[in-house]
Design a protein around this nucleic acid. Structure first.
Length: 737
DNA sequence: CGCTGGGGG
């Protein structure tokens, strides 16, 4: 196609979009209001068109237009598309900015970016003086960063819109139609502009196999397979998309589907996974990217494609030609668990709105059908109306530090669209205090100011800064990078391959020369980096090359930030005498003393936080089954399956954390909440300090051990164990016939 | 002796 023809088609295409006839009214509405809410379903064209209208109307004279997206790929692809429509080179008038990838220049006036990037920019310039308009897109997804930006912009515009600026900032909030009243009310009853979408009807039917009683079982995998096969053998042409929760489940479902398909005479030999006109394709995030791309190819004529996916297919990837949805009704979700004081991944029923979202994936190009394997009672009793927004179910430590650094002292009364539970906020404050990021009055410390600069969880940042002050950041930078990317160890679904992978991983641990999973990460990082052919090194060792590559990028970024901070401020440098292994572990202690555990009986360890949970070392750890002197450990994260497991573990000496442990108990919730609300008096503060001093007298380990005797800690284990046994039973029943 | 979704900086 010639260039002019392409231009023509892009132009006429955009004129056909539902948003086009609202063009002038939209521009007027933005001109007249500080806040505007634009709602519209997929296909309305709001993401690509609105910024162009505003650009043509001259809004970029004073500054650029920022449009935020919750995901990197979205920011990139939309920017590419808009650059094409505006006939400019990407990075000139139209550009994008995501972590590790900045396609913007002095000329950029329409800038697509991730919400996280804009939040970093707010930290550098809270008045956002380079922008005339901020457009928050996909607000209904309720990503943590978007929610925070929403509150910050509301606060700023309602209180002092022109502070630090030569003209007032405008904010456009874009969202699906759902909950538009609530959003408008939140933004001071701002006007709502709704744009019709362009989707086709999807006919939904309920199944009968899964009911409210099945919330804790995995029996749905079998049901999903059955239903997918029914659709394949009875419905007209059109591809199938199946929603399940995780990799192993998906691999199992694909195996079952393949077996079923083999029982039919009529067969095709297209690829080894293809029989009877059914092309079965798994899809999940940790899959190699080229394998992921395979799902976009249209199947050979006469063959039906069946994609078995995680929630990645709900928003991140859009597959064309999907006509049938099979919905398991479950999702894997990261929830904050106060009992362990950490975020834990668990399988839960989806919300009704999420079910509608899944169904909608069948109606993008033509009318479709959605088959839900659960019954109406499950819909009524087990599924909430809406998904609880991320801000109400994950750890807030980073977020609260960011707010504090932005001068939001009263983090409880901050304008949240949905307020997190107060105890979650207090927990975050407590952690920040423990890491010395805020003081007893809730003010950010100089250390906290340094910590906020790093794109890491606060504990890791704390350890990294400690390493820097001891002059051993070269040990900690790779470890921090490795722990902030997805799991780098590949563990396949097939048992034979598992054995092979496990052996390789054990060899890697042995190579690091110490019983320390953090040191193994460091060793893997260094070995791969110094290898001539890093990608084949990864393959041989069952390591995710993609994950390791991103760890390399993260490490470089962290190194640069550290260097910048060192030039800007005085860094206290202490000297340390001892060996490397001890040095690394001591640094880790400053960030992980909240995750200390002591051997209780046999293989059971007991955490030293107020909860005193009983935990086991995960079998993937090099410390698994190690007896002997191993009495004290720190760990990176917790996994609740058949037991409460800790993963990424290293042995420590009690001496190293002795002085830090009292911090786990000295924080009083009442005072902290007063601090958060700016209600604390000098008198109260003095009493508090006295109380803390008294607590510090006692030996923390003995103190906790005593407390534990009074508690029935078996509950922690037996809960998890009971659920596991139930699931196991369920699996047996499913296999029996 | 085991089983981690999807985002983001």
């Amino acid at each position: 196609m010639s260039k002019s023809r392409r231009r023509e088609s892009a132009d006429s295409e955009s004129k056909e979009l539902p948003i086009y006839r609202h063009r002038s009214k939209l521009v007027d509405a933005v001109r007249e209001n500080s806040f505007l809410l634009v709602t519209g379903e997929t296909g309305s064209g709001k993401t690509t068109q609105l910024p162009q209208y505003l650009h043509h109307a001259g809004f970029c004279k004073n500054g650029a237009i920022a449009i935020t997206q919750p995901r990197r790929v979205a920011a990139i692809t939309v920017a590419q598309r808009v650059a094409q429509e505006m006939h400019c080179t990407l990075g000139k008038e139209v550009g994008y900015q995501v972590r590790f990838d900045d396609y913007t220049s002095q000329d950029t006036v329409v800038k697509y970016m991730t919400d996280g990037c804009l939040l970093r920019e707010v930290l550098a310039d809270s008045s956002l003086s380079q922008y005339s308009i901020v457009v928050l897109d996909e607000v209904h997804e309720r990503s943590l960063n978007t929610d925070i930006l929403l509150g910050l912009l509301k606060k700023k515009i309602l209180s002092n819109p022109e502070k630090g600026r030569s003209f007032p900032l405008k904010v456009v909030v874009m969202s699906a139609t759902l909950e538009s009243d609530k959003l408008s009310a939140f933004l001071g009853n701002c006007p709502v502009f709704s744009i019709p979408g362009r989707t086709y009807p999807v006919d939904c039917t309920f199944g009968f196999a899964v009911g409210p009683k099945d919330v804790d079982s995995t029996g749905y995998v079998k049901e999903v397979v059955k239903m997918a096969f029914d659709v394949h053998t009875s419905e007209r042409a059109g591809d199938i998309l199946v929603f399940l929760t995780g990799q192993l489940e998906i691999e199992r479902a694909c195996d079952l589907l393949f077996e079923k398909a083999e029982t039919i005479d009529y067969r095709y030999d297209v690829q080894d996974q293809t029989v009877d006109g059914l092309l079965i394709l798994p899809l999940y995030g940790s899959m190699p990217t080229d394998q992921q791309k395979q799902i976009f190819q249209s199947p050979p004529p006469g063959i039906r494609k069946c994609v078995v996916a995680t929630n990645i297919a709900a928003t991140s990837l859009t597959i064309n030609g999907i006509k049938y949805i099979i919905d398991s009704g479950f999702v894997k979700q990261l929830n904050h668990n106060s009992r362990v004081g950490m975020d834990i991944l668990e399988v839960v029923p989806i919300s009704k709105s999420e079910a509608q979202q899944r169904a909608g994936r069948a109606g993008r190009t033509s009318a479709g059908k959605c088959f839900r394997i659960y019954n109406e009672a499950f819909w009524e009793k087990s599924m909430p109306e809406y998904t609880v927004p991320e801000i109400q179910r994950t750890s807030l430590t980073s977020v609260i530090l960011t707010l504090k650094c932005l001068g939001v002292h009263d983090v409880i009364r901050f304008p949240y669209l949905d307020r997190p539970e107060e105890r979650f906020i207090l927990e975050a404050l407590k952690q920040l205090y423990q890491f010395d990021a805020i003081d007893r009055r809730g003010n950010v410390t100089p250390l906290g100011q340094l910590m906020v600069e790093f794109p890491l969880q606060p504990g890791l940042t704390r350890a990294l800064l400690n390493a820097a002050s001891l002059g051993c950041e070269d040990l900690m930078l790779p470890v921090a990078a490795m722990l902030s990317v997805e799991n780098i160890f590949i563990r396949p679904g097939k048992p034979e391959k598992q054995k092979e992978a496990d052996e390789q991983h054990r060899a890697l641990a042995a190579k690091s020369g110490s019983l320390n999973d953090f040191a193994t990460l460091l060793s893997v990082f260094q070995s791969c980096k110094s290898s001539d052919r890093p990608s084949s090194w990864c393959k041989e060792n069952w390591i995710h090359w993609r994950a390791l590559k991103s760890a390399f990028s993260v490490e470089t970024q962290l190194r640069e930030i550290l260097l910048r901070l060192k030039q800007k401020r005085d860094f206290p440098v202490e000297t340390f005498h001892g060996n490397r292994s001890e040095l690394l572990r001591r640094c880790l202690c400053t960030g992980y003393f909240t995750n200390v555990a002591r051997r209780s009986i046999g293989k059971v360890f007991c955490t030293m936080d107020g909860n005193g949970s009983m935990v086991h070392i995960h079998p993937s750890s090099s410390l698994f089954d190690q007896e002997g002197e191993l009495n004290w450990i720190i760990f990176h994260d917790v996994l609740v399956t058949s037991r409460v497991y800790v993963r990424t573990v290293c042995p420590i000496r009690y001496d190293w954390v002795k002085d830090l442990l009292p911090k786990l108990h000295e924080v009083n919730v009442y005072e902290l909440s007063s601090v958060a609300r700016e209600e604390v008096t000098e008198d109260e503060m003095k009493k508090w300090e006295a109380k803390e001093a008294a607590k510090r007298q006692a030996d923390p380990a003995e103190d906790i051990t005593k407390k534990l005797e009074k508690r029935n800690n078996e509950a922690t284990i037996s809960d998890a164990r009971a659920r596991y046994l139930e699931r196991k039973q369920q699996r047996k029943q499913n296999k029996a016939p």
